[in-house]
Design a protein around this nucleic acid. Sequence first.
DNA 1: CGTATTTATAGTACGGTGTACGAGATATGT
DNA 2: ACATATCTCGTACACCGTACTATAAATACG
Lengths: 216, 216
Amino acid sequence: MGPRKANTPTLTRGQIVRAAMTIVDRDGLEALSMRKLAAELGVGTMSLYYHVPDKSALYDLILDASLREVDLSDDDPDAPVEARVTGVAHAIRDTLLNHPRAAIIAMSRSLRTPTQLRPIEKLLQVLAEAGMSPAQAMQTVNVIGQYAVGVTVMYANHINDSEYRDEREGDYTELTPEEFPAMFQTMQHAEEFGDWDADFEAGLSALIKGLVTDRI
Amino acid sequence: MGPRKANTPTLTRGQIVRAAMTIVDRDGLEALSMRKLAAELGVGTMSLYYHVPDKSALYDLILDASLREVDLSDDDPDAPVEARVTGVAHAIRDTLLNHPRAAIIAMSRSLRTPTQLRPIEKLLQVLAEAGMSPAQAMQTVNVIGQYAVGVTVMYANHINDSEYRDEREGDYTELTPEEFPAMFQTMQHAEEFGDWDADFEAGLSALIKGLVTDRI
DNA sequence: CGTATTTATAGTACGGTGTACGAGATATGT
DNA sequence: ACATATCTCGTACACCGTACTATAAATACG
């Protein structure tokens, strides 16, 4: 095919990003290529480059689209600080887990766009309203934000990794009880844990207690 | 060139991994290719495949080599639990920051090899000696381990990202004070924070307080 | 000693990647 | 009408991981 139409953009940035997320959700992040993306849209590969400068920018757009889904609407300004902070942290986690294969993008680039920074702004507002000093508020937001993103991304990758590794061999352990006594001892209670959500919750409330409640 | 020698391995797994880490530390993880790695060693590309099954395995080996540097030696069995846990967490962080460009590997694959699991075993031992139940110990280890790795990797990537983005344009902010009042308010105290080490410390002690001290 | 086997290195080739460049077509402005 | 801006896309290049195969040197064995 040659040139087709012009000036009536049949192809938009939004469509490109949406198709990209479809591919990432379906086949994984490493399966996303400009060629496959163009094919998914029924369009020439190089047409994408009119709307997106390069693949790195595409990653940013995917992250942006993910974080745009963060739902901060059910925040109650009259609720206690702890509950409000918990709500934002959960919103971040839920959103990232909505697109687990894309979550890793949040780790490899620093947050820049308004959409990406909105949850942070929200946290700062909540802490400011609770009377926390700017320096302490910033530290609290950094720690809790990084905790929420970091731990959730590790969980998302754990899910992906498990799926992938289940269809391979399961020979991954050559651990000896002599070298790893505590692990073997602990593994006998394996039914009692492995709940990542509960673990996240436990860490989150410890952080909020130490960084928010104990600092007024 | 064709085949040269045999049975006197001039090329070893260790040399390959060492050269790979040299490249990663110098040029970044994305600059690591089998071809460049072979060139760095003055060797044919396909020779690498006799010692390493594929590139994914190479990543695992790099992670392994990184984590092998974790120094658990100055752990004092008579120190209070909190100090011992803090020590392990810091050892993990220091090691990851020793090879910041490689740190992201720790996020994308789950820990499997003995070397990778040794810090975890150490934490389990410390908590067991402190009388914590297996289920609670496992949760504590998960949370603190994921916190240490996740937050540190985000820091490492922030460093990389900053260096890279400084030589580009700095136009990255189009934030309006109307939309982001708390951020603008907070930014006026920018000198008082930005200390990632202090932030890490604050979060870590909050976690230890809530997950260890408060649970005996 | 001769010969078979194992160990190790490496060249070639295939199918994939991101994207620079430029050619072409359509719609819009004058 | 024509010039210009907008938009699409084919070709080509350099690079990637690695399957397959050929080759040589060291070793094992008769």
